[in-house]
Design a protein around this nucleic acid. Sequence first.
DNA 1: CGCATTTGACCAGCGC
DNA 2: GCGCTGGTCAAATGCG
Length: 167
Amino acid sequence: MSHCLFSVSKNEEHSNSTDGGGNVERNSRHVGEDPSTGRDGGRGEADAFVGHKKREKRERRPRYAFQTRSQVDILDDGYRWRKYGQKAVKNNNFPRSYYRCTYQGCDVKKQVQRLSRDQGVVVTTYEGTHTHPIEKTNDNFEHILTQMQVYSKLNNTSSTFINDMFQ
DNA sequence: CGCATTTGACCAGCGC
DNA sequence: GCGCTGGTCAAATGCG
């Protein structure tokens, strides 16, 4: 583990892969037989009568992506994460995991993706900011940050979001 | 018993 | 206009 930092280029979307296909995810299978329940569809819970406007399509939530070298996808950053989905992306032969903060009111989402090229490298993307203190003080977390390298920053003009995180 | 995790399916947005 | 990908939800199951 000597190589802690990596110099990531912007080749996040390149790889070969091409074609796409290949998978059989789309199996028909009888779906819900009772539409009246409004099941599936994910966000159908609100039905069409709610005055909601689709929850602001343009989420302005800050998104931070880091690349960490870890053998496990689950990095304990001190918060409790609940896995809510897993999907395989084309660019990566490995499936991407989606995690969400279990804290009520904390809509922070985290997505973990492993590089098909370097399975030793894990890309963790944090979306949103925690609105609650850390449950457990993970001293190791600080160590992780040392290995963590921000290679892509979307939204937010802050220079060091990490500073904000520790603040 | 409670919580966390897993799997499948559907939807939505975007590209061509 | 259709196809594809990515993303999220929902329910069920297992484990502590």
